[in-house]
Simulated scan of single mutants.
Amino acid sequence: MEQKPPLPPFNLINAKQKVQMAEDAWNTRNPEIVSKAYTLDSEWRNRSTFLNGREEIVKFLTKKWEDEHQYKLKKELWAFTDNHIAVRFEYEFHNSDGQWFRAYGNENWEFDENGLMRKRYASINDVPIQESERRLK
């Protein structure tokens, strides 16, 4: 059975660890690495896009990082319970035209007993910024 420690139920220490692990994985910008944190049938809402399963996650992230250059993400634990974690995050990237953006958002995560994320619901807003306004490098 595939496991991704730390496993629920979460406490402050391992919830923060889970958030840091997610941040580290996303900052690799490698869809295969990121997808390993999710169940095979994981359910996502990312903005107005709905996905199901690792295969769709990999396709989605591959396209995302083809369009979002120099992507850099920071996540912060917001709240947690037994098998749920809520995070706030921001990330920065530029598009192919060189326009920089900062995206702000919140995610709600639900984990199975093996520590794999079975649900991820993300609400995200983008703000155009100047390159000189970047905070994440």
Rank of each mutant, 00 (worst) to 15 (best):
K18G: 06
L116V: 05
N27K: 08
R134I: 01
S35A: 13
S35Y: 04
V19L: 10
F101G: 02
I85K: 14
T62L: 09
H84P: 00
A86K: 08
V58A: 03
R102Q: 05
V19M: 14
Q99H: 00
W26F: 15
A103L: 01
N114W: 02
D24G: 01
G98Q: 03
R118H: 13
L116Q: 10
P8N: 05
A15Q: 15
E32I: 10
N114S: 13
E55W: 01
R54I: 02
E92D: 05
D24A: 15
E90R: 14
N106Q: 14
N95Y: 05
E110M: 15
I124G: 00
E133W: 02
K72W: 12
G105Y: 09
W109L: 12
D67Q: 13
N114G: 10
V19F: 12
N95P: 09
T81I: 10
D67C: 04
V127H: 02
Y91E: 12
A122R: 05
N106S: 15
W44T: 02
M117W: 10
P9I: 11
K64A: 06
T81D: 10
F93W: 08
E110V: 15
F50L: 06
N46P: 00
L61M: 15
D82K: 14
T81R: 11
N83F: 03
M21N: 11
E110K: 14
Q130W: 01
K59E: 11
V34T: 12
H84N: 12
A79F: 08
N114P: 05
D82F: 12
R120T: 03
E92M: 11
L7F: 07
F89R: 08
W78L: 13
N46R: 09
Q99V: 02
A37K: 15
A25W: 08
G105F: 04
P6F: 09
D112S: 14
N14P: 06
E68L: 06
R88T: 10
R45P: 01
F93T: 07
N106F: 09
E131Y: 02
M1F: 07
T49P: 00
Q70D: 13
I124S: 04
A37M: 13
Y71I: 00
H69Y: 07
T39V: 04
E90L: 13
K64Y: 09
P31M: 08
E133D: 05
W100N: 02
F80E: 07
N27M: 06
R29C: 13
D112H: 06
A122D: 00
I124P: 00
R134D: 00
R47W: 12
R102Y: 03
S132M: 00
R47V: 06
Q17S: 08
R29V: 09
E133Q: 11
D126W: 09
H94Q: 09
F60R: 06
L40N: 12
P5S: 07
K119S: 05
N30Q: 08
E2S: 07
S123Y: 15
E131G: 03
N83Y: 03
N14Y: 14
N11W: 09
N30P: 02
F93A: 07
Y38E: 07
S123D: 11
D24R: 14
N83D: 15
N83S: 12
L136N: 02
N52V: 08
F60I: 03
W100V: 04
K119G: 03
E107S: 11
S48C: 05
L40C: 05
D97Y: 13
T62V: 10
E2C: 03
